[in-house]
């Protein structure tokens, strides 16, 4: 396989009453090796469930209705959606690991940092001696710049700050040298100065290891600082995807443009902020044509009748908009 992860035609549905409601619609993504890939969008656009689907962690009643997620594991190519629970557990934590938004609630409050790190380690390396585990844990804590690692090892989560906990979450996520790290809003709950520390740490770790990162965030600033390739999600679809420089420099989709203008018009001369009217339509209430049509200032007649296809506007830059391509989604 050329890529580390290939998502094809992924559809995720949930149940509302007895009705099946689509939350993610025909998503295709390629995650290259040793790259950092950003997924950006507002809440309810489907970015978190995509990450959860990769690890087989969709909570009931959400489920993958269709599609494939192929992963190039150490032991060869695998279809993640067809793995047994046992096989999935082996992949999880060892080859693909995840860090979450809330470091405060992601660690178990009744165990020390040490025990939680050993647990992650021994699950995938049974038979490791305690001394070896300790050495490995200390090494990881040093790599994520935890001051006084020996002391931190025997601390309980409530004795540590949010920034320290997120470092520890990263240390646990990386302890088995995963090939892919899923980071779901890893800095949203943190202050800016701590966010800057964590983002730098993640950039450094990516350089040092051969780890690919999928960074899921609503913050375009975080994307600009950490990612090489970006996909913009809107209402369960990819609406634009490109190299980060291309995306910020040659923005094609009106939604991406709106998001960028909403943040970059801050601090400008005009006191009036650029706004996208309306709200993100929730799953089940998507329009027939382009799902952004109702909020788009460039909306045309045909946008309401047919859905534009995700097409390449320049090599490597995909966009789903009739302004750039006539192609209709089948």
């Amino acid at each position: 396989m050329e890529n580390l992860l290939e998502i094809r035609n992924l559809k995720i549905t949930t149940l509302r009453g007895k009705q099946s409601v689509r939350l993610l619609d025909k998503v295709d993504l390629n995650i290259a090796k040793k790259r950092s890939f950003g997924i950006v969008g507002e809440s309810g656009c489907g970015k978190s469930i995509t990450a959860n689907a990769i690890l087989g962690l969709l909570p009931y009643p959400l489920r993958v209705a269709e599609g494939s997620i192929r992963y190039d594991s150490k032991a060869g190519e695998r279809e993640l959606l067809q793995l047994s629970k046992k096989e999935l557990r082996e992949v999880r934590g060892q080859e693909i690991s995840m860090i979450f938004q809330e470091p405060m609630t992601s660690l178990d409050p009744i165990f020390t940092v040490e025990m939680q790190m050993y647990e992650a380690l021994s699950f995938h390396h049974p038979g490791l001696a305690r001394g070896e585990m300790r050495d490995r844990a200390l090494e990881m804590l040093r790599r994520v710049n935890i001051p006084r690692p020996e002391q931190t090892l025997t601390s309980y989560p409530h004795q540590l700050s949010g920034g320290q906990l997120q470092r520890i979450m990263i240390a646990i996520a990386l302890i088995n040298d995963p090939r892919l790290l899923l980071a779901d809003e890893p800095t949203t709950a943190l202050d800016v100065t701590i966010q800057a520390q964590i983002l730098r740490l993640m950039n450094d770790l990516k350089e040092q290891n051969d780890t690919s990162i999928i960074m899921i965030t609503h913050d375009l600033g975080v994307i600009a600082e950490t990612c090489e390739e970006v996909a913009v999600f809107y209402a369960g679809q990819v609406v634009e995807q490109a190299n980060v420089v291309e995306l910020f420099g040659q923005t094609a989709h009106p939604y991406t443009l709106g998001l960028l203008r909403a943040v970059t018009s801050l601090g400008g001369e005009s006191r009036k902020l650029y706004t996208i009217p309306g709200i993100v339509p929730p799953g089940g209430q998507w329009a027939q044509g382009c799902r952004f049509a109702d909020r788009c200032e460039k909306c045309m007649e045909k946008c309401r009748q047919a859905m534009p296809a995700l097409t390449e506007v320049v090599p490597g830059h995909l966009c789903r908009c009739f302004l750039h391509s006539e192609e209709v989604e089948q």
Binding site: V192, A196, L199, G221, A224, E225, V245, F248, L260
Partner: peptide
């Protein structure tokens, strides 16, 4: 520490 919105001119963070 505020992330910049320009990937070509990343902020020079004072850590």
């Amino acid at each position: 520490a505020v992330p910049s919105h320009d990937p070509l001119h990343k902020s020079q963070h004072i850590m």
